[in-house]
């Protein structure tokens, strides 16, 4: 197990180096930040001076080495727009994004798993139909549209929740539902078909013929086996949630990483883009690692060594 973990960790380092290289190249190829850094009427000499002071006049590979040297020490440079260390900006916004992603995941998992199980066990019931509708709507509704619809309904018409911003629990409800809906639909459909699949297996028939109560059959045997694919997908959904945060954060004025990243892209704020992408990559890699470990724990047939 330890060797497996070490190997996985070293893979993760390679992935992060790869991501940093790709981000660096894409950002540098997409344009020159100096022209956006100054007002439109700045003189060409001013632009040159800024390029030099940002180190943009040096060859690309030297800029990359410089970047890596700093990044290893946690120094991604000074944000061009905010004139503050880029990593600080990212870390300031990290709690908001994590809160949103975890709440969204919570909404998704807590509704998807029971709904999926019930829909599979009682295949002809209204719950099953409801689950199918929720699954279809959840996966086909654009996040943006769902968010605005919730705001119109719950804030403007019914005055139940604040339309946007970060504050107490009441501020979190709509963004969490919005960001979690897609994953909820995804996980629920998967859960339903996984349970259906497991229920048809021989060991379930054996359990039933032993005279085990149906509840125990479902909880002890069917659920545990059905959860294996669901855990994997849930882990992958975390990455989807972080990506979805960009839109949800914009709609709900949520002061998170996604919005920082969008603004940084618009302003070609290279240090901030690199720091934000790197931190997001670290989180996704870490969650994938944890998922893999959970997977091997849940499924005794998966053992790496």
């Amino acid at each position: 197990m330890t060797r497996y973990m070490l190997r996985r960790l070293s893979h993760s380092v390679f992935i992060l180096v790869g991501i940093s290289l790709v981000t660096f190249l894409l950002v540098h190829l997409s344009g020159d930040p100096a022209s956006l850094y100054l007002p439109l009427d700045a003189s060409p000499e001013d632009v040159e001076a800024v390029r030099a002071s940002l180190g943009l006049d040096r060859p690309l590979h030297r800029q990359y080495l410089e970047f890596v040297r700093g990044a290893v020490r946690g120094d991604f440079g000074i944000s061009l727009r905010h004139r503050e260390p880029a990593l600080n900006l990212v870390i300031q916004r990290l709690p908001a994004t994590l809160q949103l992603a975890v709440a969204g995941m919570g909404v998704a998992v807590l509704t998807a798993i029971p709904l999926g199980v019930v829909a599979a066990v009682r295949r002809e019931s209204p719950v099953s139909t409801l689950a199918s509708v929720a699954g279809l709507l959840g996966q086909s509704m654009p996040v943006f549209w769902l968010g605005l619809l919730l705001i119109l309904l719950l804030s403007v018409k019914m005055r139940l929740l604040p339309p946007s911003g970060r504050g107490g629990i009441s501020h979190l409800i709509m963004p969490a539902v919005t960001i979690g809906t897609y994953s909820m639909a995804m996980v629920m459909r998967l859960m339903r078909s996984a349970v259906l699949d497991v229920l048809g297996r021989d060991f379930i028939r054996t359990a039933r013929s032993k005279g085990l109560p149906e509840r125990l059959v479902i909880y002890r045997h069917a659920l545990r086996n059905a959860l294996i694919p669901v855990v994997t997908v849930t882990g992958l959904q975390f990455g989807v949630l972080l990506g979805g945060a960009v839109i949800t954060e914009t709609v709900f004025s949520w002061p998170g990483l996604g919005r920082l990243l969008i603004q940084a892209f618009n302003n070609r704020d290279m240090p901030t883009i690199q720091a934000a992408v790197f931190v997001m990559a670290v989180m996704i890699v870490a969650v994938n690692l944890i998922t893999d470990l959970a997977y091997s724990h849940l499924d005794p047939t998966v053992r790496f060594g």
Binding site: L148, S164, G165, T250, V251, S253
Partner: peptide, 18 residues
């Protein structure tokens, strides 16, 4: 001074009296 990036959300904030 609040930051509300999305146009429609800004309008909803005003309509909701926030």
């Amino acid at each position: 001074f609040r930051v509300v990036p999305e146009n429609s959300t800004r309008i909803a904030e005003l309509q909701a009296g926030k």
